[in-house]
């Protein structure tokens, strides 16, 4: 089969695109350390979250120096904490978010960032992020969860280290 010289050029270009896409995603996983949300968070009983040692009292737990765990329950149509009171974490810290749902599938998205996961009833989604600068982020549900889905939102407040105090953690 005789292939035209231009056709060879754009066949090579198309192959280069495919190889380039795979290479950049591989770089992100290996070089930049981007992680996917896995199932390592384990499972919980969505009907008895109030008996769970952490989800029974959701909020920010300090686990080490500049290391915090935040337990968040998503439910129709709020995040707890997040909606009625913001999730508070200190600046310049490593935060692991543990997110689950008490009823139906929700989304948990820190607006405008890469922190984004599904909140599945019975499953804990665990994502670790590094927060640097103080500021406030929006939270929203990005999985349709019912009639008031559009109103399901909250906020994540990164508090300056100087203003951080013990009352902002559960433990």
């Amino acid at each position: 089969m005789e292939i035209h010289k231009y056709e060879k050029v754009w066949l090579a270009g198309a192959l280069l695109l495919i190889v380039g896409l795979i290479a950049t995603v591989s770089y992100g996983a290996v070089g930049a350390g981007i992680e996917m949300v896995g199932d390592e968070g384990g499972q919980v009983d969505p009907a008895s979250l109030d008996e769970h040692p952490k989800f029974g009292e959701p909020g920010t737990y300090q686990t080490g120096e500049d290391e915090y765990d935040v337990y968040v329950i998503a439910q129709q149509f709020s995040f707890e904490p997040g909606t009625s009171e913001p999730i508070r974490v200190p600046a310049d810290s490593t935060v692991t978010l543990h997110v689950t749902s008490a009823d139906v599938i929700h989304g948990f998205e820190v607006v405008g960032t890469n922190a984004n996961t599904m909140a599945v009833p019975g499953q804990v989604a665990t994502i670790t992020i590094e927060v640097d600068e103080p500021g406030e982020y929006g939270l929203l549900c990005n999985e349709y969860c019912g009639s008031a889905h559009h109103a399901m939102e909250g906020s994540l407040e990164v508090v300056p280290q100087s203003e951080w105090n013990e009352s902002m953690v559960v433990n």
Binding site: L21, G28, A32, E35, T113, I127, E130
Partner: peptide, 29 residues
């Protein structure tokens, strides 16, 4: 096609390396 490939390449680099990897609160674990 060369122009199209260049646009796709530049947009991919911008989207992945600038918008995604350069974005805030990247999931690291």
């Amino acid at each position: 096609i060369a122009i199209y490939m260049a646009i796709v390449g530049v947009m991919w680099v911008f989207m992945y390396f600038v918008e995604f990897l350069g974005g805030d609160l990247t999931v690291i674990g």
